[in-house]
Write a protein that binds this DNA or RNA. Sequence first.
DNA 1: CAATAAATGCACTTCTGTTGCATGGTTCCA
DNA 2: TGGAACCATGCAACAGAAGTGCATTTATTG
Lengths: 138, 138
Amino acid sequence: MIQADKFMEEKGVRPTAMRLLVFRFLAESKAAKTLSDIENTFAKADRTTLYRTLKTFEDKAIVHQIDDGTGMTKYALCEEGCNCELEQDLHLHFHCNNCKETVCLTEHKIPYINLPDGYVAEDANLVLKGICDKCSGQ
Amino acid sequence: MIQADKFMEEKGVRPTAMRLLVFRFLAESKAAKTLSDIENTFAKADRTTLYRTLKTFEDKAIVHQIDDGTGMTKYALCEEGCNCELEQDLHLHFHCNNCKETVCLTEHKIPYINLPDGYVAEDANLVLKGICDKCSGQ
DNA sequence: CAATAAATGCACTTCTGTTGCATGGTTCCA
DNA sequence: TGGAACCATGCAACAGAAGTGCATTTATTG
């Protein structure tokens, strides 16, 4: 486990108490979390603060947003060397219909798609839905 | 162009004036439309009616929903023989970052993805983002 | 220590999606 | 044909998430 406060300073984010809590919470949870998830975990914290904390993290490439189709934006820590903005780093996400959790499948990149003439792809989002390893009992 | 009212009756939907308008609007527009789009097009119509019209269409497999990551649900007519609920019919969607329109690439199916052990895919959503054929000037 | 900048907390707004309920129009059968 | 039952429509209101403005507290720096 890396030193959270040092890591954040390297990324150009002041490691306040609240930010460290949010960072550690995301680091310990394998699945992506919504703003509400975090809000419920730290009941004393204000939603706006958490909202802006996540936004700051996103700007500094500490977390990335995930749109898994549930209608709620989720956040997950960027893996080491994750370049969310680069097309070659577009990993896919898996949403479990059973436990409702969404995880990054960092090793699984989105395959190249052959588009019709005139279409230029710059970005992609692929969400697979089904049963995750925990819920399939394997 | 098919007979809209006959088509709707075959699908088990009463072809009211409003429904025909919405159907024709979707049929004439190549891109997927949001509820707000339709609301603005038919200013006299009530939002709830349009909402339920789209829901009815969806239930009867006349339209399918698209989540292109813009945060607003979009709707597009199902192609002939489109079985939105079946995995083998999962076509992908393209969202243009320039004109902001989203289109179905019906011919382009989502490729098979090799998942880690224990993961079982039941559904998938793939949205490519970039520049569409109209905007790339080709 | 003072001045400045950043982070936090509260209130409020906006937007999309959604539901309840009353009303108006169709269909269908006695 | 009359009316009961059903369906579609319209109005109002609500819920949840996202986002903004502003005042206050906390941290940083000269």
